[in-house]
Design a protein around this nucleic acid. Structure first.
Lengths: 172, 172
DNA sequence: CGGGATTTGTAATACTATAACATACGATAT
DNA sequence: ATATCGTATGTTATAGTATTACAAATCCCG
């Protein structure tokens, strides 16, 4: 059986959807333009491979697993390092994030945020909404500084039910 | 070569340490007593196997990897499900936590906290200090409720330098 | 064109985790 | 005591995630 994550087949566009996830989506065209812009500004190049991976992330209806992305690239001919290298590059550019608690990756929903994002991960529909987690980071900084700890980065991932899914799951 | 995580050999006590981590440690005896108490209160039993795993976590000088714990149990004769089951039990009891960004496990430093903890993970010494992350959770709740999201649980993990390590790493 | 840096391809392997089923153990009811 | 049931542990196999190491191709610049 196929994996749970929704990596689109190459022909699909963002309006249609094979799974039950009609709600959330990225703007693929805008995301790719932004990606080009960010890479150019950083003096790096968005190669065809990297662009393809970025596009898969943008078309995905939620966090995507590395091996699913790999499978979607040229019908699975690519090897693991291919996808991990592309993902690492996109993360370095702030164009994608890794979600630790899912072992999955998602396009940046904010527009190449270089800094600590947070995610609200819906356990019903699988979508992960990105937060520019400034208040959360501030609280974390406060707790850290009390202990003399200097934060370099943080993982902030909440799981629960999104606005659309809460009604259908909690019947009461 | 051996793994990076510090799982003690059975003879070591909490005062001695093979690695460079002299600073942080759990109180092993107190932790085991607390574990007994919590399990009894929950109507569950801290079997010898679970107790051994708890003890390994308490003796570890930082987050421990599942396969290292496995190796440390009866000199490596145990199979993976053994350790994952024990860890799952300990997590269910609030006696241990999983650190997602490290794929590692650590004894609860607060005393069987059932709820969302946060961690400050030092990238120099490997220690992970546990926070009862109430202000952080409050900030997260605030951001979530703005979006109609109901949080069931959260992963909060900061990495950086602890008080003891910051001076030795940042020379400037 | 030469040469160095970057990117991609490929093979092999390491690391992390779970499924599925078998066996053993412990409490309780008869 | 023993039948039985639930819980815990043992065991085999496999699934899923990620990295190392090296080779080949490509690109840019002089």
């Amino acid at each position: 059986m196929a994996s749970m994550t929704q990596v689109p087949d190459p022909a699909a566009d963002s309006a249609s959807c094979a799974g039950g996830h009609r709600h959330h989506a990225f703007d693929v065209a805008a995301g790719l333009l932004e990606a080009e812009r960010v890479c150019t500004a950083a003096g790096e190049s968005l190669t065809p491979l990297r662009r393809d991976v970025m596009e898969l992330l943008l078309r995905a209806h939620g966090p995507a697993k590395a091996y699913d992305l790999l499978q979607a690239l040229t019908a699975g001919a690519a090897k693991p390092p291919t996808i991990y290298r592309a993902l690492e590059f996109l993360q370095r550019m702030g164009l994608a994030h890794r979600i630790e608690s899912l072992n999955a990756f998602i396009a940046c929903g904010i527009g190449a945020c270089a800094k600590n994002a947070g995610f609200l991960i819906c356990t019903a529909c699988g979508w992960a909404e990105e937060l520019l987690a400034d208040p959360v980071n501030a609280a974390l900084e406060g707790a850290a500084s009390e202990r003399g700890f200097r934060i370099a980065g943080a993982v902030i991932e909440a799981r629960g039910l999104c606005r659309d899914c809460a009604p259908s799951v909690a019947t009461k």
